[in-house]
């Protein structure tokens, strides 16, 4: 008998599915995108079997679409994630997130003495540095310090 591919969480009529999130990053993605504060239905799964990654997490956000800036936020903690836009139960757009070369506005510089943390209205600006192991560091345009992944804090 053919194995059903259907997920245990029902399909959404309109909205966005974020798939292939590292299993331990789902709650972080929920928080980053502010999905813990929306009034529309949000479904999520963790430790779901994945052929590609072993386990994965996913989020289905009804009636919610993301701007490029939001997608960038996802890429920083879940670089393997794919964003699937749904309209009338049909996939209308699917893209894999890519880590941008630069990040503006959305992440705090970890350096408490950086001008972006000391002065009002100085937006953060980083160059993304990716090493051979795939680790990401954000090089601050202003204070020239590197914010590592474990110190990422979103604005």
């Amino acid at each position: 008998m053919e194995k059903k591919k259907e997920l245990t969480v029902s399909a959404i009529e309109n909205g966005t599915v974020i798939d292939h999130i590292p299993a331990d990053k789902v709650f972080q993605v929920v928080k980053i995108l502010g999905l813990d504060r929306v009034s529309t239905p949000v479904y999520f799964g963790i430790n779901v079997e994945s052929k590609k990654y072993g386990t994965k997490g996913f989020i289905k956000a009804s009636n919610k679409y993301f701007e490029t800036e939001d997608v960038n936020k996802i890429a920083l903690v879940a670089p393997t994630a794919s964003i699937i836009e749904i309209k009338d139960f049909e996939v209308v757009n699917k893209q894999t997130v890519t880590i941008p070369d630069s990040i503006e506005h959305i992440v705090k510089c970890f350096n408490p003495n950086c001008v972006t943390n000391k002065e009002h209205d100085v937006p953060t600006k980083f160059t993304v540095i990716k090493d051979a192991q795939g680790n990401i560091k954000l090089h601050c345009h202003y204070c020239e310090k590197n914010t590592t992944q474990d110190k990422l804090e979103f604005i």
């Binding site: 003495n113 950086c114 001008v115 000391k118 100085v122 345009h141």
Partner: peptide, 9 residues
């Protein structure tokens, strides 16, 4: 200025 990055800004 004692604030890092202040000169760039």
């Amino acid at each position: 200025n004692p604030i890092e990055g202040s000169a760039r800004f």
